[in-house]
Design a protein around this nucleic acid. Structure first.
Length: 602
DNA sequence: ACAAAGATGAGGCGCTTA
DNA sequence: TAAGCGCCTCATCTTTGT
């Protein structure tokens, strides 16, 4: 599937990047290439030499940079960098430049495309035990790309037929080309994407039911093949349809997920707790899994997430019940919910407790006791100035109109009082404290990066409360697959619970974040292994099997996928689950499903 | 080149009111 | 019941500064 994912990448951004590089379009959309420039450079060598891409905690990661600087083609690093920025490996680009010269970018691209096709499809063939995986589409897709280059038209990358459109959408969602083809074949070309995913979802359910039966060597596609017992699949598809009908009957319009009020999930340390729930059969581990994302998404997103994650209803929790800042999040997991224990000591529960220095300056008319959600951006000093000026003329209590204006800004930007009439945004170390991270956890990286990384992180006390049930179950420690690890919220939660991590395979695209986690890992003298990989999209079945056979499977698969296209804070690309970054959710599902299959076979 | 500052609403929910 | 209002949200993009 790597190959097809790679194709989609081209379809969306890279070809545009290439055309820009070529000077054939204006730079209006230059932002499109941002996503894979800085952070994905470590994709290099991943597919070419699997072992060398492991960034072990020893810190040999920098070996690559030395190697790169000695490369002959680095004299003109612009062409090199641009192609690397498009997602090709450094070795491949260097080889292509050597062969065709730096100027001949067309020939370079052509060679890179054909190389990556060969490389990826050979990988795919290794993964797939069936000859059913025909190369029909390889050819047509490849032809598409040849056309792309020659025509230079702006509409060229759009799929030519309805079938290809559906195919690409499904592949982007993490299904293999074969699964997608079969789904389209079975459901018909006129089917909606939802119907197709429903079909595939039901098929996966069917597969999960088969997990008890002897499994073939690789996680295959038996559950989708036409010779799969039609009766059973029909039954499962019918179940899905039945559920849909029920939803319609009760006026839910096919959307079952509603946000609870109060948002306390199955319970909080200081309140009532639900003691039992029944999980769908397909959801029951091993492994345990834990998925996180923002609670307030566009409509239907959590329905889709839940449907993919084995129909487990999300647990929505606002972290304001755990600490002094709000953080409304949804968690889909299959952990037990009985006998949860909070981390001790309990973190400060109010602004007043969390920021005692601000008490002196806190005006009586600011009635906040909790902060709003900690985000990745903060206000400027200019707003502080404006607020100070607005309040300057009043000795005591300003008029209500002024109060309202000031409070509006304070809530919007999470401002706190730091002097007479003086507000300020929270400092990065205050973010760390409120989110339950060790002090100075992110120290050493730029201030902007600290806000960004922390704004995207877990609230440790909340997650640890959910994880706490694992402690007695795994007295000897656990193996963790950590997707979208960020600065290591999950790892820190486990550590603070006293759960030993024997092996952690961590996937994180940002080098800055990987460094933060690695530093913490070393500082806390972890005895287990931390294995870092950059990109979830590159984690295939072979690689997973290698890991799992070496240390006997994963006990926990955890991750919070990118929320960029889901959060209301995004004014530009709130595109939902199909958005550029947020669609990586489907890789969480893909990888979890692979792990489940492999575990069932071990 | 990098870091920081400044400008940039929509969408969804809860609540009140007519 | 519907309309109106207040409130909140793991952000992005361009410009400016160093």
């Amino acid at each position: 599937m790597c190959f097809y994912i790679a194709r989609l990448k081209f379809g969306e951004a890279k070809l545009r990047a290439y055309r820009e590089m070529d000077g054939s379009t204006s730079g209006v959309e230059d932002n499109d290439i941002d996503w894979n420039t800085e952070d994905e450079l470590e994709l290099d060598n991943f597919t070419l030499s699997p072992c060398s891409s492991l960034l072990l905690t020893g810190g040999e990661a920098n070996a690559f940079s030395g190697e790169a600087s000695s490369c002959p083609s680095s004299s003109n690093s612009k062409v090199l960098d641009q192609f690397i920025g498009m997602g090709f490996s450094k070795k491949m680009v260097e080889k292509a430049i050597q062969e065709h010269g730096e100027e001949n970018t067309d020939a370079i691209l052509e060679m890179l495309l054909s190389d990556s096709v060969l490389e990826s499809s050979s990988q795919e063939l290794q993964q797939t035990d069936s000859d059913h995986f025909s190369s029909d589409y390889d050819g047509s897709f490849l032809d598409d790309f040849s056309d792309l280059e020659s025509s230079g038209d702006e509409e060229i990358m759009s799929p030519t037929s309805e079938e290809e459109k559906l195919l690409m959408s499904l592949i982007k969602m993490g299904y293999t080309e074969e699964e997608a083809s079969i789904a389209i074949e079975r459901c018909g070309l006129s089917s909606s994407l939802l119907e197709l995913t429903d079909f595939l979802s039901a098929a996966h359910l069917a597969k999960a039911e088969d997990a008890l039966l002897p499994l073939e060597q690789k996680p295959g596609l038996k559950h989708l093949h036409t010779d799969y017992p039609k009766k059973k699949r029909k039954l499962l598809v019918n179940q899905v349809s039945k559920r849909k009908r029920q939803n319609r009957l009760i006026g839910e319009d096919n959307e079952t997920v509603r946000l609870p009020n109060p948002m306390i999930g199955f319970g909080i340390p200081t309140g009532p707790c639900q003691s039992h729930r029944t999980l769908p059969k397909a959801a029951i581990g091993p492994p345990y899994f834990y998925f996180e994302n923002v609670a307030l998404t566009p409509k239907g997103v959590w329905d889709t997430i839940s449907r993919f994650l084995y129909d487990v209803p999300p647990e929505f929790v606002d972290s304001k019940y755990f600490c002094a800042a709000a953080r409304k999040r949804g968690y889909v997991h299959n952990l037990p919910i009985e006998n949860r224990i909070p981390l001790v000591p309990l973190p400060p529960q109010t602004i007043d407790e969390a920021l005692p220095m601000s008490r002196k300056w806190w005006p009586s008319w600011d009635t906040r006791t909790k902060l709003n959600c900690l985000q990745t951006c903060h206000s400027s000093a200019k707003l502080t100035e404006r607020i100070m000026k607005a309040l300057e003329g009043y000795d005591d209590i300003p008029p209500e109109r002024v109060q309202r204006g000031v409070m509006h800004e304070c809530r919007k930007w999470n401002l706190v009082w730091v002097g007479k009439n003086r507000v300020a945004p929270l400092e990065p170390d205050e973010f760390e404290m409120l989110l339950g991270f060790p002090k100075n956890h992110t120290r050493g990286i730029s201030r902007t990066d600290r806000y960004k990384s922390l704004g995207n992180a877990f609230q440790i006390d909340t997650v640890a409360y959910h994880f706490s049930v694992l402690r007695d179950m795994f007295p000897n420690g656990i193996n963790v697959l950590s997707l979208f690890s960020g600065i290591g919220g999950a790892e820190i939660a486990l550590h603070r619970l006293g759960i030993r991590m024997k092996n952690v395979v961590s996937l994180e695209i940002s080098e800055v974040n990987r460094n933060v986690l690695r530093c913490w890992w070393e500082q806390t003298n972890q005895r287990g292994n931390l294995i870092h990989l950059p990109d979830v999209q590159e984690l295939n079945a072979d690689r997973l099997e290698q890991f799992m056979s070496s240390f006997g499977g994963f006990d926990l698969v955890v991750g919070g996928s990118p929320c960029n296209n889901l959060t209301g804070s995004n004014r530009y690309h709130r595109d939902g689950l199909e958005g550029k970054e947020s669609s990586l959710f489907y890789h969480f599902f893909r990888i979890l499903d692979l792990v489940k299959s492999i575990m069932a076979g071990i």
